[in-house]
Design a protein around this nucleic acid. Structure first.
Lengths: 238, 238
DNA sequence: GTCTATAACCGGATAGAC
DNA sequence: GTCTATCCGGTTATAGAC
C-alpha cells in the first residue's frame, strides 16, 4: 500500500541511515521552502534542488507533493503544544480554556495563512493523506483530540457522562471548523475568525450547561448516540 | 473583475452572436465530457477539440478550467428542482420534507459522484468561483435557500420567529454538510450518507421543537443572533 | 535489493502573431 | 476572436550506480 517510507529496520544499517538522512533533507527543504515562498512556489524542482537531489528522488521517498507536505501538520502541532501549556495555565474556566486552545492554534498557524488555501485545497481530497480524517493524519489527530480530553478532565464544569465521552472529538471538529473559517478570513488580525471562536465557545459552554437539564435528557442522548455512531462508522471499513 | 463573459451587448451584433455561440459550444463540450469521462480526464485539450476550437480559445472565454465547470452547479440545481416538486408533494411533515430535499439532491448528483472529489477540491479554494459561498455561486445558492424558505412557509410545525428567519440558511448549510459527507462516501448505495441525513433530520426537528421551550429562550436568542451576524458579515466586504 | 539521476510525458495556462 | 507555439510544474519510465 505504501512506498519504502521509513524502510523497515532490517538489512544493512548503513544504507538505511543514509536513506533516512536523504529523506529528512528533502522534508526539511520542503517545509522551509513552503514557509519562505508558499505552497505553490515551492515546486518539486525547487525542493529537490535545495535538498541536493533530483526531483524524481523526492518521489522515491514521497508518493506526491502532498504527502511530502504532510510533515507540515506534525510540525504545526508540535509548535502548538509548546505554546499551549502556558496558555492553559493562565486560562480560568472552560470557556477561556477552549478559547486558549484555538487562539494559540491560530497564532502558530498565522505564518502559513498565505499557503493555507493551497494546503486546504489539497487536503479537501478524500484520498489525500493531508485530509485531516485520513489514516496518515491519525497520529496528529489523536493527539489534538487528547488535548481536549485532558482539558475536560481538569474542568469543574459538570458534564453528563455520555456527552463527556464524545465531547473531545466534537471539540476537535469545532477546532477544524474555526480553522476552515480562518483559511477564508482576510480581515485585519483575522478579526472575523476570532469573533467566531469567541461566540461559538460561549455557545458550547451554554449548551453543555443546558444538556444537564433533566427535561432534555432524551434529546441529549439521541444526539450523543448519533455522534458516537458517526465516529465509529469512520473507524470501520467503508 | 471578469473576462469578456457575455460581452456587453454593444458593438456589432454579428460578432457578439458568434462569440456567444462559441462560448456555448465550449461550455456544452465541457459539461458533456465531464459527464462522460469525469473531471480529470476532461482535459482542456479534449474539451477544446470537441468544441472545435484551440485550447487557448477556451481560455479566452473562461479564466480557468474551474470557471468553465461552473455551469455544472446550475445544471445540477435545475435537475434537482424538476424532481423536487413531486417529491415534496408526497412528503408528509417537516422531517419527511427536509429529507425529500436532500434525498433528491443526492439522487440527481449520483452520476457525478466519481467527479465530485475533483470538483470539491476546486471548490475548496476561497478564490474559486466554484466555492459555494462565492459571488459567482450566488444565484444558485439563493435559489437553493429559497427551497427551504418555501418549505418552511408551508409547514405546520411551530417555529419561533427569530429562528424562522435564519432557518433557511441554516438548513442550506445542513444540505452542504450532507453533500460533503456524500463526496467522501464510498459505501454501497451511499448508505452512510443516507443514514446521516435521516438522523440529522430527526435531530433538527427535535431541536426546533425544543427551541420553543420558554426556559431555553435566552440560549436560542443568542444562538440565532450569532448565526445572523455570521451571515451578515459574509455580505459585507472583508 | 537500495538508492539516485536523466529524460520525458502530460495537462493547465500564456504569449503573441494573424 | 482564433490560432500556433511554448512555458511550466507535477509526475513517471527507465536505466544504471552503489
Amino acid at each position: 500500500m505504501t512506498q519504502p517510507q521509513p524502510p523497515p529496520p532490517s538489512a544493512s544499517e548503513a544504507k538505511t541511515v543514509k536513506a533516512a538522512r536523504t529523506r529528512a533533507r528533502i522534508l526539511d527543504a520542503a517545509l522551509a521552502l513552503v514557509e519562505e515562498v508558499g505552497y505553490d512556489k515551492a515546486t518539486m524542482r525547487a525542493i529537490a534542488t535545495r535538498a541536493g537531489v533530483a526531483p524524481s528522488n523526492a518521489y522515491y521517498y514521497f508518493r506526491s507533493k502532498e504527502e511530502l507536505i504532510q510533515g507540515f501538520y506534525a510540525r504545526l502541532h508540535e509548535e502548538h503544544m509548546v505554546v499551549l501549556g502556558p496558555a492553559l495555565e493562565s486560562a480560568k474556566g472552560l470557556r477561556e480554556q477552549l478559547l486558549a486552545v484555538v487562539d494559540t492554534k491560530l497564532d502558530v498557524a498565522e505564518p502559513y495563512h498565505a499557503s493555507s488555501a493551497a494546503l486546504y485545497r489539497a487536503a479537501a481530497d478524500p484520498k489525500s493523506p493531508l485530509n485531516p480524517f485520513s489514516e496518515a493524519s491519525r497520529p496528529v489527530r489523536d493527539d489534538a483530540i487528547a488535548v481536549f480530553t485532558d482539558l475536560l478532565a481538569g474542568t469543574r464544569t459538570k458534564i453528563p457522562a455520555d456527552l463527556a465521552r464524545q465531547l473531545p472529538r466534537l471539540l476537535w471538529t469545532w477546532e477544524l471548523a474555526i480553522i476552515l473559517r480562518w483559511i477564508h478570513d482576510d480581515s485585519e488580525g483575522r478579526r472575523k475568525t476570532r469573533f467566531l471562536a469567541e461566540r461559538t465557545a460561549d455557545l458550547i459552554v451554554k449548551l453543555i450547561r443546558v444538556s444537564t437539564l433533566p427535561g432534555l435528557g432524551p434529546l441529549r442522548r439521541s444526539a450523543v448516540k448519533l455522534v458516537a455512531e458517526l465516529f465509529e462508522e469512520d473507524a470501520a471499513a467503508s
